[in-house]
Write a protein that binds this DNA or RNA. Structure first.
Lengths: 236, 236
DNA sequence: ATCTGAAGTCTGGTATATCAGATCCCACAA
DNA sequence: TTGTGGGATCTGATATACCAGACTTCAGAT
């Protein structure tokens, strides 16, 4: 994610830092609350109090309000005008987030298969090869990182900025949970097979196949995450 | 969209008004800005000034900031910390919104085909029949309304709240533009055929067919809208 | 003429104040 | 006991104040 310098005059020039990296209070609140919600630390329907949150974070209500507005647009909380916001997240919501990601990620895989070039295709294959190695050596940390690179590379190859952004918001598990999933040898092997197949389909330009395989991959692995996060309970 | 009373004691009882209907300043600003952006009244990369917007709307900057936060999460503007927000919308963004909607709407059609019951299926068929009548009589206004009902009904039948919400945000054209599109007899006929086919696939429970047809419908009609809004110019 | 950098200005980020709708409580009447 | 209603309280919505980072400008140096 390091931005490339736009025609650096000297080879020793440093890359510009991306303004996005700067942290503001509202972003911190947003990320923290989002993580807490997705971790199930609030019950669906639970009310959030702006003043109380402001006090807990040790800030004023202004950045809290802005963070809540973002969560609202993401669909994780619901705003009842003049009454406050309530949590809107449970297992069924997570299931739908998986479906949304499956739909979008498969669409982007389809486009990537159509639009990827020779060099980018080679890179994708290279990432898949590294995944194969990491799977053999049971290197969970590398797998988590490679997984990210893999999907990120496909996003870039599709040249779809909007879709890529949209997909980012459909993730309800974080890196620590991803690490857990990669500890299981069977799961590791399954994921590798899927990734390899997806890479092959994309590189060979088989858009429809890439789409189907990506969708199945996201749904299947998503269900695995679902079981980890919600502990197999199919209640409610 | 009238909420049904939860066990009204008297048949004469009034239905509760949905709190969502209440309008707040930030919602008004949000909708207005969103419509303006989608109507192409700002150039991509153009900077928005909070104080200037506040003055134009005749309000303080607080609701403006909140509205901008929502637009940011929707992906229509980009926030550069401590530097402001810039517009992020052009034809390619609109194209991706169509693809997103196609992906999500087809996923929801798939689920609706699996989950719809007898009575809801009959209602869907009824809506399709009304569409046929309105198409024959060239009633553009009814078609716009029925179109909304049609998709809304499928959303409800899929029992997917999150996906339905997500889809709502992928619309870059408003009712007035929809009316324009329904003025064209050829387009009207094409849309009717697609709607009829989708309804049939859903009612008969053919999930995969419903999915494919919905996707093609959204992409095709989306391209028509694209041509109207961006006037066929394939530049940039 | 070009570059540097210090001062001034602009503008987003945060804190605080105020208002009004929503909710809660409890006395009082039927 | 149950239900009504008025007032106290809570809390979200909005306005305003203030600070600090970002940008602009321009004088002075090279």
């Amino acid at each position: 994610m390091i931005p490339e310098p736009t025609g650096s005059p000297r080879s020793e020039a440093f890359a510009k830092i991306d303004p996005k990296f700067q942290m503001t209070v509202r972003d911190h609140v947003h990320r923290t609350l989002r993580a807490a919600i997705l971790a199930g630390r609030f019950a669906t329907g639970e009310k959030l109090n702006e003043r109380s949150l402001a006090e807990q974070f040790g800030v004023s209500t202004t950045p809290i309000k802005e963070a809540l507005r973002q969560l609202e647009t993401e669909g994780l909380v619901e705003a009842l005008p003049r009454r406050g916001v309530i949590i809107r997240f449970d297992m069924s919501w997570a299931e739908e987030m998986i479906l949304a990601r499956a739909a979008l990620e498969s669409m982007i895989a389809h486009l990537a298969a159509k639009r990827i070039g020779k060099p980018a295709g080679a890179e994708l294959t290279a990432i898949a090869d590294l995944m194969a190695k990491a799977t053999l050596s049971a290197d969970a940390d590398s797998l988590v990182s490679l997984n990210e690179q893999f999907h990120e590379h496909i996003h870039r190859s599709s040249r779809c900025g909007y879709l890529a952004k949209l997909i980012e918001r459909q993730q309800f598990y974080d890196a620590s949970i991803r690490r857990v999933i990669h500890m299981d040898p069977a799961e590791r092997q399954k994921a590798l097979e899927e990734h390899t197949a997806i890479a092959k389909a994309i590189v060979t330009g088989d858009a429809d196949l890439a789409e189907r395989q990506m969708r199945n991959h996201v749904v299947r692995s998503g269900e695995t995450y679902l079981n980890i996060v919600f502990g197999n309970k199919k209640d409610i």
